[in-house]
Design a protein around this nucleic acid. Structure first.
Length: 120
DNA sequence: AACGTGACGGAAT
DNA sequence: AATTCCGCCACGT
């Protein structure tokens, strides 16, 4: 726990958590988009790091985040892969061979609306 | 403080 | 369409 995490200014990872929280049901975003929306262009990997380190008291719709090519990031058949696929399907997202058509399901947020919702 | 790792991405092959 | 390569940089050891 660092200073910035306890203070009022959210750390980079906390901003990623915040934006993740805004992804609507039935839509997906790529790690890169998530980073962009959090004000961290080019930091797709950090988005992955952030989700990986989500504290368990915090429940995020992490299953709505997939790779830019539309694939689930987990190994096919793994525990997490199956869970993510199940959750996505439960909210109407079509997943075929571990892949989602970004053309159809990508979240396209209105930036003005997004800024309005962020708590800072 | 140095070093390897990785829930990524995009360009090249 | 599938792989390989390499830039990116926060984290844990």
């Amino acid at each position: 726990m660092t200073e910035t995490e306890t203070g009022s200014v959210p750390s980079k990872i906390e901003r990623i958590w915040q934006v993740c929280q805004l992804i609507p049901e039935g839509r997906v975003v790529s790690y890169g988009q998530l980073a962009d929306l959090a004000g961290l262009p080019g930091r797709a990997r950090l988005a992955g790091t952030a989700l990986k380190s989500t504290p368990k008291e915090l429940t995020l719709p992490w299953h709505r985040v997939i790779t830019a090519s539309g694939k689930l990031a987990f190994a096919p058949g793994s525990e997490q892969f199956e869970l993510q696929q199940l959750r996505l399907r439960q909210e109407g997202v079509l997943v075929n061979n571990g892949r989602v058509k970004m053309r159809e399901f990508a979240w396209q947020p209105d930036l003005a609306e997004l800024l309005w919702q962020l708590p800072y």
